[in-house]
């Protein structure tokens, strides 16, 4: 029984499940460092997921799907930025509104675009292909790292790229300064607003990729509200890791694997509802370390 749960297959599933979380957590970490508690990740991701299918369906190319997903999510995040930064909307309520908006608009579009209600699935639409890494694919256990689609590898690469961007480059310095002392930017005569928008752009791209992975990463399909709270799981992972990118990435991957393990429980006769609950319960567990931080106040 245990060997079913802790098999290489579970590991592979876990890495897959972790990918959308990873992207979102990366975006969320940047937001958090820049002083924005962003709960709209969920909405951006859902919009990305929808347009991923649209791109893939109409251009017959998964790559076009990814690009369209990123573009749509980016547009949403810029709109979010406009309302947050320029119209000074309340962070939580705005994020809540955006999530509602994402569900509503993807639900609305489903019918005219695909002519169906609730969900859309068409096996003929191309999805992202799995790519094998040469040598690694032969080594036991390590071979779990191989055979994923391009977005999974991109996710791992993004951890490094975004880390370097945030901690080693001049724009990264400014983005981090946003969250700590905005005036340090403006008294040097630069526009803090510009960097705040840059942050929103980055989170838009990240969530777009997350969405694309969900809808065209494996099966090509879209169902209403298919993100099912993954954005919040990412937000929790960001909080758990103190928005430190490597730690947030690690948290997402561990979460993905834990989730994959949990899914195996269904095979052992656990009711589906309880299996579906597991990610939410894991998320709540991730919130708990905040208790210790809180004691400092």
């Amino acid at each position: 029984m245990l060997d079913i749960i802790f098999s290489e297959h579970t590991l592979i599933t876990g890495l897959g499940l972790a990918t959308p979380l990873l992207f979102c957590a990366l975006g969320g970490s940047i937001c958090s460092k820049a002083g924005n508690f962003n709960i709209a990740l969920e909405g951006f991701m859902l919009i990305g997921a929808f347009f991923g299918v649209v791109g893939s369906y109409f251009f017959k190319s998964p790559l076009a799907g990814v690009l369209l997903a990123v573009a749509a999510s980016l547009a949403a995040s810029m709109l979010y930025g406009l309302f947050l930064l320029q119209f000074k909307a309340h962070e939580v309520i705005l994020g809540f509104g955006f999530n509602m908006f994402a569900i509503a608009i993807t639900g609305w579009l489903l019918e005219p675009v695909f002519g169906g209600k609730g969900s859309f699935y068409d096996p003929s639409i191309p999805s992202l292909k799995a790519i094998d890494i040469p040598v690694v694919g032969q080594i036991p256990v390590l071979r779990c790292l191989s055979g994923h689609n391009i977005l999974v590898y991109l996710g791992w690469a993004s951890v490094i790229v975004l880390y370097l961007l945030l901690y080693k480059t001049a724009p990264g310095y400014k983005m981090r300064a946003l969250g700590e002392n905005k005036d340090a930017i403006s008294t040097n005569g630069l526009s803090a607003l510009k960097y705040a928008y840059l942050v929103e752009m980055l989170v838009g791209v990240c969530c777009g990729l997350a969405g694309a992975y969900l809808s065209i990463g494996g099966l090509t399909m879209f169902t209403e509200n298919m993100t099912a709270g993954r954005g919040f799981i990412a937000v929790a992972a960001v909080g758990f890791s103190g928005a430190y990118i490597p730690l947030a990435a690690l948290a997402s991957i561990v979460f993905g694997i834990a989730n994959a393990v949990a899914i195996q429980l269904q095979g052992l006769g656990m009711p589906t509802q309880f299996v579906d609950m597991i990610p939410y319960i894991l998320t709540i567990l991730m919130l708990l370390p905040e208790m210790y931080k809180h004691k400092k106040i």
């Binding site: 119209f87 909307a89 309520i93 509104g97 509602m100 908006f101 509503a104 608009i105 609305w108």
Partner: peptide
């Protein structure tokens, strides 16, 4: 469709706290 009403509602939520919007 009913989703149109959901869009209406979510837009209201987005706009309702946006102080700057009224200044604009």
């Amino acid at each position: 469709s009913l989703d149109t009403v959901r869009i209406l509602i979510s837009v209201v939520v987005i706009c309702i706290t946006a102080e700057g919007l009224y200044e604009v």
